[in-house]
Amino acid sequence: MRTTVLAATLAATALVPATALAGTAPATHHGPVRSAPHTHPAGLAPCGAGQLCLWAKTGFTGAGQTHELSTVDIESCVPLPSGSHAQSLVNRTGRPVTTYQSAECGETGEFETYPGGGTWVPRSPYTVRAFKIWEN
């Protein structure tokens, strides 16, 4: 898998690990912790458990798409609908997902694999035109 300096920098600053999903109180809080159930870290886009969510624009904005394991063949190239693309994404499938610049999942263009436990990518380093969901 190719990783550019830009992609590595973006990945280091943009990925939010699944552990950030747990409701925790600030360090200065001294009372009991009563947190509401969270589906996403505060300030980031919502995406349901078991879903891959894609947005046309950075920052989780623009037209959105949601994909689930029940509608996707594992380890098969899934091109986005004709004329659509993604610039931001959330992977909560529980499986690794590779996004591709190529609509045919070609490895001659850019591609990146994101962990499935809860990964928020507000700015993809390239325009996403297809993806693959992998076995664990």
Results as ranks from 00 to 15, higher is better:
T9Q: 14
V121T: 15
S35A: 14
N136G: 06
T3N: 12
G23M: 05
G50F: 03
T19V: 13
H29L: 03
T24P: 00
A86T: 02
W55T: 03
C53E: 08
R34H: 11
V72K: 05
P96D: 03
C77S: 08
W55S: 06
S88F: 03
H67M: 10
P17I: 07
A22W: 01
G106A: 11
V78A: 07
V78G: 01
P17E: 13
G59N: 08
C77E: 06
H29S: 05
T13E: 14
A130V: 10
Q87N: 00
A25D: 06
S84R: 07
R2A: 14
H85Q: 00
A12K: 15
S70E: 11
G50M: 03
R129L: 12
E110Y: 07
L15Y: 02
A45C: 13
L89H: 01
T4V: 15
S124F: 07
F131T: 09
A22P: 00
G23R: 11
W134T: 05
A14C: 14
E135A: 13
E104V: 01
R92Y: 02
P79Q: 00
E104Y: 04
V121F: 14
A7D: 15
C53V: 08
T24I: 05
W55Y: 01
I133G: 06
K57F: 00
E110I: 01
G43D: 03
G83T: 02
G109D: 15
P115W: 10
P37N: 10
A130T: 06
G64F: 06
V33A: 10
W120Q: 08
L15M: 14
T98I: 06
H40T: 15
T13Q: 15
T119Q: 12
V121E: 15
E112G: 01
A56P: 00
T3P: 05
H67Y: 15
A25K: 04
R123S: 11
G118D: 13
T71C: 01
A22C: 06
P37Y: 08
C105Q: 09
S88D: 02
V72I: 14
W55H: 01
G43P: 06
Y126S: 13
I133K: 07
L52F: 08
L10S: 12
T39R: 07
R123I: 07
T39Y: 08
G50K: 02
P26D: 12
V128F: 08
R95Y: 10
H85F: 00
G62S: 04
T4K: 14
S84I: 00
Y114D: 09
T93G: 05
P41W: 05
W55K: 03
P79G: 02
E68R: 13
V16A: 10
G116I: 12
H85I: 00
T28W: 10
A20W: 01
S82V: 06
L15D: 09
L15I: 13
P122C: 13
E135L: 09
G116Y: 10
